[in-house]
Simulated scan of single mutants.
Amino acid sequence: MVALLTAVCLFSAVARALALPSPHIPMAGSLPVLRLPRASDCHPSHTEFTSSLSDLYTVIEGDHATGQKGLQLFLDRPHGEVKMDKETATNDVVGTGATVNSTYAMGHGKVTFEVAAPTVSGVVTAVILVGTQTPGEIDVELLGGDPAHWQTNVFAPTPKDPRPLFGVFSSVEDVPGPEGIAAFHKYTIDWDAERIVWGVDGQDVRTLDRSKARSDGFEHYPTGELRVQLGIWDASSPAGTSEWARGPVEWNSAPKRISAFVRSVTVEC
C-alpha cells in the first residue's frame, strides 16, 4: 500500500470505515497500555447469507442481494461522465459500493470470512474488523488488479502521528489455487490482546505481535471493541490509493455493476 496520502485522505478514510460523521481519534500511545485477557463479550456465530442478512448485520451504504452464492455486494458505476486523468491515474468521480456492518462488537476473537472477489483493476473488496468508537482496523483486502494475492493490514492511528500510517503494517500474501481471489476462499483474522494472526483456507500465513506494532514511538495495536465490516469500493481516487489498487477503474469497459460475494462469516471465541 502507498503511504503518500494527505491528512485529509486519512481522516476521510477513517470516517468511512467507522460509518460516523467524523473520526474519533483515540489517545493510544500516550496512555499506559493495559494487558487484557481475551474478552468475554465475543459471542460465537455462523452466518450464511443465502436468504437474508439476519439480525446480526445491517447495510450502511450501497446495494446488496442474498442468494445461493451468499451476500452479493454491488459496486455501481458513477452517474454521468467519468473523466480519467492519465497523468495521475485517477478518475474524477468514484462508484458507490456496498458496506455492511455487524450489529455486534467484539473485544477479541477469531473471524473467518468466506469470500469471492471481482478481478477488476481499481476495485477493492475488504472484509475487516473496524472500531466502534475509535479508528482501529484489522484488514483483509482483495485487490481486483492483483488476483493472485491478498493483503493484510493493521491501522490504528494516534493524534500525534507525524505521518499517515497507510501500509506501515501491511503485507501481501499468496492466494491458493489458479483462480485466485475470484474463487471462494476462507480468510481468517484471529485477534487477541498480544497478537493478530491472519490465515487463508485453514493455514496461518502471518502473525503480528503487539510488541511489533509500533511506529514513530507509538503503539498502533487495536485495543477497543471492533465490529465486522464487509465492503466493496472504487479505489480510483486519490492518486496514492489508485496506484495501490492498480486503478483507476476503466468504467468505459468495466461492467456497470460489479459484484463481490461473501458466502459466510464465522465468529469463534
Rank of each mutant, 00 (worst) to 15 (best):
M1Y: 15
T6C: 08
L10C: 08
A15H: 06
L20W: 11
S22H: 06
A28M: 10
G29Q: 07
P32M: 05
S40W: 05
C42W: 06
H43T: 13
T47A: 07
F49C: 06
S54D: 06
T58R: 13
V59T: 08
I60H: 04
G62D: 11
D63V: 04
H64K: 00
K69W: 00
L75P: 03
H79M: 12
G80D: 04
M84Y: 15
T90Y: 13
D92F: 12
G97M: 09
N101I: 02
H108T: 15
G109Y: 11
T112K: 12
T112P: 13
S121C: 13
G122Q: 08
V127D: 06
Q133C: 03
E137N: 11
E137G: 01
V154M: 11
F155K: 02
P159W: 01
K160P: 00
P164F: 03
L165F: 04
L165H: 02
F166I: 00
D174S: 14
E194Q: 14
R195Y: 09
W198C: 01
D201V: 06
Q203P: 03
Q203E: 15
S211D: 08
A213P: 04
Q229V: 04
I232R: 04
W233A: 05
W233G: 01
S237N: 10
G240L: 11
T241Y: 15
A245R: 07
R246N: 15
I258L: 12
S259K: 06
F261R: 12
V262Q: 02
V262G: 02
